Deep mutational scan, measured.
Amino acid sequence: TLDDSATICRVCQKPGDLVMCNQCEFCFHLDCHLPALQDVPGEEWSCSLCHV
């Protein structure tokens, strides 16, 4: 889900339109996540760090 609060991106440390991982609660810009996300993920989304 998009989170436009004062939360910062885990990768670039900047605020903005972010998606939050449902497991670790880290936030990412779509372009900062590795691999980059093309679209906003669904409600139950886990980042690539949680899939390691």
Rank of each mutant, 00 (worst) to 15 (best):
D31T: 06
D39P: 08
D31V: 08
C32N: 03
C24T: 01
A36F: 07
I8P: 06
L34K: 14
Q38P: 04
Q23L: 09
N22W: 04
F26A: 12
C47T: 02
F26G: 14
G16K: 07
D4V: 15
Q23N: 12
V11F: 05
V40P: 15
C24H: 00
C12Q: 03
R10M: 10
V19L: 09
L34T: 12
H33Y: 07
G42Y: 04
T7G: 09
L34A: 15
T7A: 10
S46Q: 14
S46I: 12
L2D: 11
L2F: 09
F28N: 01
F28Y: 11
P35C: 04
H29Q: 00
G42E: 10
V40W: 11
D39L: 07
L49P: 14
N22Q: 10
S46G: 06
C21F: 00
E25G: 07
G16D: 14
H51A: 15
V52D: 07
D39R: 08
E25C: 12
C9P: 06
D4I: 13
Q23E: 08
T7F: 05
L2G: 02
Q38D: 07
Q13Y: 11
C24F: 00
S48H: 13
V40A: 06
L18A: 03
F26M: 11
S46N: 13
S48Q: 08
H51V: 12
T1W: 01
S48T: 08
R10C: 05
V52K: 05
E44Y: 10
E43S: 12
S46D: 05
C24D: 01
L30Q: 04
D31E: 09
V11K: 09
W45V: 08
Q38I: 14
E44R: 11
S48K: 09
H29A: 00
V11W: 04
D3L: 08
H29W: 00
E43N: 11
D4L: 14
E44W: 03
D4F: 09
H51W: 05
S46H: 10
D17C: 10
M20A: 06
F26V: 06
N22K: 13
D39E: 15
T1G: 02
V52C: 07
D4G: 08
C12R: 06
C9A: 01
D31I: 03
D39V: 13
H29R: 01
E25Y: 12
G42I: 15
V40Y: 10
R10A: 06
V19Q: 05
V52A: 15
Q23G: 15
C32G: 02
M20Q: 13
L34F: 13
P35D: 04
L2I: 11
D39K: 07
S48G: 11
V19P: 00
C24G: 03
Q38R: 13
S5H: 15
L30N: 07
H33T: 08
L18Y: 02
H51E: 14
T7Q: 10
C21V: 01
G16Y: 01
T1I: 11
S5I: 12
T7P: 09
I8H: 10
C21G: 01
V52Y: 07
D17M: 05
E44P: 05
T1S: 11
C50G: 07
P41Y: 02
C47M: 01
M20T: 10
G16A: 02
Q23A: 05
H51T: 15
G16C: 00
L30T: 07
Q38E: 04
A6K: 03
L18E: 05
I8M: 13
S5W: 06
L30W: 07
E44T: 09
S5M: 07
C24N: 00
A6F: 04
R10P: 06
C9R: 00
I8Q: 14
T7H: 10
C32F: 00
T7Y: 13
R10T: 12
L34Y: 14
I8R: 14
F28Q: 03
I8K: 11
E43R: 09
L2V: 10
D3C: 03
D17S: 13
Q13E: 14
D4W: 12
L30S: 10
H33E: 15
R10Y: 08
N22M: 06
C50A: 11
T1K: 14
E43T: 06
C21E: 04
T7M: 10
T7S: 11
S48C: 06
L2N: 13
E44K: 09
P41M: 06
E44N: 09
H51Q: 15
E44F: 04
H29K: 01
C47W: 00
D31K: 03
L18F: 02
C50K: 11
P41E: 11
L18T: 15
V19G: 01
H33P: 06
C47S: 06
D17V: 05
H51I: 07
Q38S: 07
L49D: 15
G42W: 06
L2Q: 13
L30K: 06
V40D: 12
A6R: 07
M20N: 06
V19E: 03
H33I: 06
P35N: 08
D39G: 08
C50N: 03
L34D: 15
W45Q: 11
N22A: 08
Q23F: 07
P41H: 03
M20G: 07
S5Y: 02
E43Q: 07
D39Y: 09
Q38N: 14
L37K: 04
V19N: 03
K14N: 04
A36S: 14
H33R: 11
A36M: 04
C24V: 00
S5G: 06
G42T: 15
L30Y: 11
L18M: 02
H29P: 00
T7K: 12
I8A: 11
E25V: 03
Q38G: 09
L34G: 14
M20P: 14
E44G: 12
P41R: 07
G42M: 11
C47D: 04
N22D: 08
P15S: 12
D3Q: 02
L37M: 11
M20K: 05
V40K: 08
C27Y: 13
V11R: 10
P15V: 06
V19A: 02
D17P: 02
G16M: 03
L30C: 10
Q13G: 12
V19F: 06
D4T: 14
N22I: 06
C50R: 08
E25P: 02
E43V: 09
D3N: 11
S48F: 04
H33C: 15
W45K: 10
V52I: 05
W45R: 10
V52G: 06
E43A: 13
S48L: 04
V52L: 05
C47L: 01
P15E: 12
H33K: 08
P15K: 09
D3M: 03
S46V: 14
P41W: 07
F28V: 08
F26P: 00
N22C: 11
L34R: 15
L49S: 15
D3P: 05
V11G: 08
Q13D: 15
S5L: 02
R10G: 07
D39H: 07
S46F: 10
Q13K: 12
W45P: 10
E25L: 10
P15R: 06
I8Y: 14
D31C: 02
V19W: 13
D31N: 15
Q23S: 11
L30G: 05
E43C: 10
F28A: 11
V11A: 10
P15Y: 08
P41F: 04
R10F: 07
A6V: 05
